[in-house]
Nucleic acid binder design. Sequence first.
DNA 1: TCCCGGTTTTAATCATGATTAAAATACGGA
DNA 2: TCCGTATTTTAATCATGATTAAAACCGGGA
Lengths: 198, 198
Amino acid sequence: MVTNSTKSATSAFDDKREQLLRAAARCFNEKGYSGTSLKDVSAHLGLTDAAIYYYIDGKQQLVYECYRRAADIGRAALDDAIATGGSGLDIAFDYVRRHVDAHCGSAGPIAIMSEIPSLRDADREHILALSREHSARFEQVLEQGIEDGSILPCDVRMTGNAIMGAINWIPKWFHGDDAVAQRVAATFPDYLTRGLGA
Amino acid sequence: MVTNSTKSATSAFDDKREQLLRAAARCFNEKGYSGTSLKDVSAHLGLTDAAIYYYIDGKQQLVYECYRRAADIGRAALDDAIATGGSGLDIAFDYVRRHVDAHCGSAGPIAIMSEIPSLRDADREHILALSREHSARFEQVLEQGIEDGSILPCDVRMTGNAIMGAINWIPKWFHGDDAVAQRVAATFPDYLTRGLGA
DNA sequence: TCCCGGTTTTAATCATGATTAAAATACGGA
DNA sequence: TCCGTATTTTAATCATGATTAAAACCGGGA
């Protein structure tokens, strides 16, 4: 019935839908959008491909929601980091820590937005807007750090691209190993912010 | 006729074949392996899709050679960096500089190896081997830097992953703008090695 | 000018995979 | 136990795109 429930009450339906999004995210990360068949995704849930249509409107809708979920998680990581306050460098560190946790922790696989062109026109606009907004906000954090002296002057756009790239690439080599997750958490925030100066 | 010429003599055939690989790399980077049709690739050369088969054995062969070319370029960047010598940190800096140049400079689009699973079994083994070897060699450079005191002790595998990720993600946002290329060159080597300590 | 190899296109073929409709199944409550 | 809704499957349909074979084209040398 594909209910567009706005409520967050945890129905069995919503649960399974969430599972579906995670399974799809994992598949998309591994084999790309066009490379994953709905059968690949449904297999993760022990269903047939056709069953997916009970939960979601189609494959396009599936990527779109995966990407939107990814954007939400990234935004939340930045929101929370900003909320904790501190210098620009502190915020940047906390953001990396949270975002990396999101990729490696129990939040499950998060889709990396590596195939924006394959989205429907309207969806692409929306996702691009979210993505640009996120980048801009992070760059502002870097600028704030430059002003408060915690970060060395730099090209914030390029530096932001470097940091985002390092994070976005994680799913390409991280596959759920807890021990590795710890090493990521112990290394990434420190390494990626140490390069910002001090 | 799809000659497997080992010579490097620049025949018109080899030239066009090289153009083909670059066009394919650009397409794969933008829309993924399955997402790009041979028609997409051939359009870049002003040909029809069927004409591609005159130059290469098929789509699988095309990705394989794109990835192999990418591996070669990455290896060359590391070889050259090591050849110039210096501390581990110096080498790391030079490697990043060269590899980033390769992505943004006239070497043309380099395929990012983001869809290893879609390779044929035998090809996948080969590419994975090259990839692992490259990572291992770069980690050795980092270790050398730790020994000679130019790099702070760290988890070289994770740090290497972070650096490679930042570089590999470049094609996702860089689209040939020369001015941007300069900013990348001015920012990445410095930022990515500054985080290694000193 | 005519011929030939090298190059490209046209016009099939063929498999894959998204999507849909109808039928089957499961399961909680009356 | 029986019913009705929620869930899933089965069995089409349909479009896309890789691949191939045969025909057409093109430029240089005899």
